[in-house]
Amino acid sequence: MIPTKEAFEKALAARHGAQLQERFSAASVVICGAGGLGSNVALSLARAGVGNIHLIDFDTVDISNLNRQQYLPEQIGKPKADTLRENLLRVSPYINITSHNVKLTAENIPELLAPYPIICEAFDKADQKAMLVNTVLEHFPDKYLISGNGMAGTDSANMITTRRITSRFYLCGDGVSNVDDGLPLISARVAVCAAHQATIILRIIGEETLSL
């Protein structure tokens, strides 16, 4: 039997502190891309009890995703955004999770991302990452943007860092490892980068109680 909403809230407040949990519960984050980065960022935010999570992806689950993405074998062929929503709701049943199966473009980003104060870039292709970052920084200079850049290969996980580029733009990753050079994408190293992204998002949400 699933515990009640009140039981969840009490457990989260006990673990995180009531003030921090209040901030997590009130927060709203959009995750652009529900692959290796996005599905792991989303899982961390859902477990932390972030109250409003919006997922955007145009793709479907493929067997090649299962080495690092938060999907199950029986979900192959299903749309990622909706399927991740289902999976996150099993983890954290009382948060508000919405999903949109759409490809983000420079044309639709200004409309589709407008409602969200915190934007997580979790794409896989370099030119698409650049497109989203440029579009968001041009249209929404007041929003927080957290991007993942460089988590391929088998180098030490210690190479992955969080860098503050401007006051509201953070870059997580090793900055150099490129899947286009034939490097592998391995579960743990991708999850480290995603955990960097999720950590800075949670720190931003809690900024009045945590000093950055």
């Binding site: 996005g38 794409f123 030119d127 391929a152 870059l171 900055g175 490129n178």
Partner: peptide, 10 residues
Amino acid sequence: VEIVSFVGGG
């Protein structure tokens, strides 16, 4: 100037 150069993978 800060030039952020994106690489593939995610």
